Computed example of a mutant assay.
Amino acid sequence: MKDQVEKISLGILIFPGFPMACLTSCIEPLRAANEISGQEAFSWHVIAEQDQPIQSSAGVTFFPDSTLADAQSLTHLLFASSPNSVFDNPSKANAALQRLMRNKTRIGAISGGVFPLARTRLTRDNPLSVHWCYEAAFQAEFPEIPIHGTVICEEGAFSTISGASAVFDHMLALIEKRLGGDVMAEVACWFQHPFIRSGTVTQKVPAISTAQSQDLLPKQVAKAIQHFAEHIGNPIQISEVADAVGLSARSLERSFKKATGHSPLTYYRRMRMNQARQLVLYTNDPIAEVAYMVGYATPSAFMRHYRETFGVTPISDRRAKNSMRVGSDDVLPSG
């Protein structure tokens, strides 16, 4: 075990409707590391823009330790929020963030927190990790920012983390750096964290309507899905995809049915609908524009397929999401 080390101070900047799992995945491994090592190697602070209680997406209320304007001497500051979160006073918040960055605080975000971070414009064109379920909405709002599909992206002055489990991995990396591999391994075992991922690991994405992730599908089926993903806005013919993966259209049909239970065409349409739903729920883009963005020539066909897929119209779906707001923000998955 290492001798006494300089304390690492982590701030978690929370917004109304933030995913609670992201907060606990930051704090619990650091608490355990302190206990195991017998040192106060880490401290943590819950921070908010205003000095008032903040309700999480689970409905649990948290009282911040300090406001962003008063935050001092932080080694790291991570945004935890939904995609729709914004600062009440952006200019004052940006001034506080720039002050922290001048004092060597590393700024970052977890899951939906990447949206308010990007809205500060402090990241400029720095690559960021974006959770797969928010990629379409993020690209629509920030087309100039490169997206990394890894669980963690640490480039330039920013650390972006795709979700709550990835936060735990990131905290383990901080523990290893400050207290050594033995303490890090014991913390992981305390929580039965199954394995310790590098930040460069690609995010797992679920295969549609199967009990598998896409990386577990047969190679040629996975390649076909990748081609579909690259042609959401400009639809591609199934025969073209079959040629690209070295199969006949009939063989691709059989392989898809066996692996996913769906035809390639049905699977492709569901991919386009899932991306459309991100845009419906997490952007304010007009429904007609969403239809064009996922490759529909007319909104009427898009709306018909959307209702067939999700059982509601895009307009109704957006209204229902808005009715589930917590405070001024949205209820979202923990990522």
Rank of each mutant, 00 (worst) to 15 (best):
A41P: 04
V60I: 15
L78D: 11
Q4L: 11
I8R: 05
L30G: 00
P16H: 09
A21C: 02
D51T: 06
T75V: 06
P53W: 09
A95C: 02
G38L: 04
P90F: 10
A58K: 12
G17E: 04
P53F: 04
T24D: 11
L68A: 12
T24A: 06
S85I: 01
N34Y: 03
V5L: 08
A21R: 05
L100G: 00
Q39A: 06
I14Y: 03
V46T: 13
A95D: 13
S85E: 05
N89E: 12
S56A: 14
F62M: 14
G108E: 12
S91I: 06
F87D: 05
I14R: 03
T67R: 11
N103D: 14
I54N: 00
G108P: 09
E6A: 13
L30W: 05
S57H: 09
C26I: 06
P90V: 10
L30F: 08
Q55A: 15
F79Q: 04
M101T: 11
L30Q: 07
F18P: 02
A41W: 09
F15V: 06
A58H: 14
N89K: 13
Q50T: 10
Q98G: 01
T105M: 01
R106V: 15
G17D: 02
P19K: 03
F63N: 14
A71E: 09
E28L: 06
I54K: 01
A58P: 00
A48K: 07
H76A: 08
G11L: 05
I47N: 01
D65C: 10
Q39R: 09
G17R: 02
S85H: 02
N94P: 06
I14T: 09
N34W: 02
R106Q: 14
N34E: 06
P53R: 03
F62P: 00
F62T: 08
P53S: 08
T105V: 08
A58E: 14
E35K: 13
I12W: 03
I36D: 02
K92N: 04
K104R: 14
T61C: 09
D65S: 15
T75L: 03
S81P: 11
A21G: 04
A69T: 15
F42P: 01
N84Q: 15
I27M: 12
A71I: 12
I14Q: 07
A41S: 15
I36N: 02
P90S: 09
L13W: 12
K7Q: 15
